[in-house]
């Protein structure tokens, strides 16, 4: 399969106006991906499927990613004149990146037997503007997985034929896979709690009664009276 850079260039030539961004994966897998702008995502997906050299006819996996608000600190050494002597002084700049949600598609070709090409789409933020175009019209296999992402991450897929929750019940309001989701507190009975569970279970602990010897202890169940 051709390099991702080449694919990017060919998409930009084939779909005029599309903005494709390379997203580097620093991990050992080096599975770099292409970020597609939401406006042209449908056309880009269609082109990836139909292009005779790529023929990405199989969408094997669709998943969501939740990116919280984050600040990236960058330390750059800047040459400065201090006391008339030129020195290299480290300067830290902070960049605030607002949070967003991402939908990631892993595409393979069954006909040519190559892949994957990974494309991703981003929402504007995590609260209200959580729309990305649905790629179900291009790959039918994305239907349930997009519903799953809608359920667990809260991304709305515009143009999805049947966008309902798929795993949780319809009345459920949260999105369970978001990083700021907190599950309901039902840790009344934890026989062997540890770590985070221990912290949650502590809220339900009954403090041990203080005995001074004057109480009557029931022989049956060990309960303390008086």
């Amino acid at each position: 399969m051709e390099e991702l850079v080449q694919i990017k260039a060919r998409i930009e030539a084939a779909v005029p106006g599309s903005k494709i961004e390379m997203v580097q994966n620093a991990g050992p897998s080096k599975q770099h991906s292409l970020r597609v702008d939401n406006e042209h995502a449908y056309d880009v997906a269609k082109w990836l499927r139909d292009d005779p050299e790529l023929r990405m006819d199989f969408c094997s996996n669709v998943t969501g990613v939740d990116w919280l608000d984050r600040t990236v600190k960058k330390t750059v050494k800047v040459k400065k004149v201090v006391d008339e002597v030129e020195k290299e002084v480290p300067e830290t700049t902070e960049e605030k990146i607002p949070g967003y949600l991402e939908a990631v598609y892993h595409l393979y070709s069954m006909t040519i037997k190559h892949g994957p090409v990974i494309i991703r789409m981003r929402t504007a933020d995590r609260d209200k503007n959580v729309c990305v175009p649905s790629l179900t019209p291009v790959w039918r296999s994305a239907e349930f997985q997009e519903r799953e992402i809608f359920d667990l991450y809260g991304i709305r897929f515009e143009g999805h034929p049947d966008l309902r929750r798929i795993l949780m019940w319809d009345e459920f309001e949260d999105h369970a896979m978001r990083k700021d989701y907190r599950e309901p507190d039902d840790y009344e009975y934890e026989p062997t709690p540890h770590d985070e569970v221990l912290e949650k279970a502590k809220a339900h602990y009954v403090s041990r009664p203080v005995l001074d010897g004057a109480e009557k202890i029931s022989a049956e169940d060990g309960s303390v009276n008086g």
Partner: peptide
């Protein structure tokens, strides 16, 4: 089916977890 969990999360007439002191 509730907004965040099942309602009620447990039936108090049935579920008697041992209180761990």
């Amino acid at each position: 089916f509730g907004k965040h969990d099942l309602e009620p999360p447990a039936n108090p007439n049935v579920f008697h977890p041992p209180a761990i002191e």
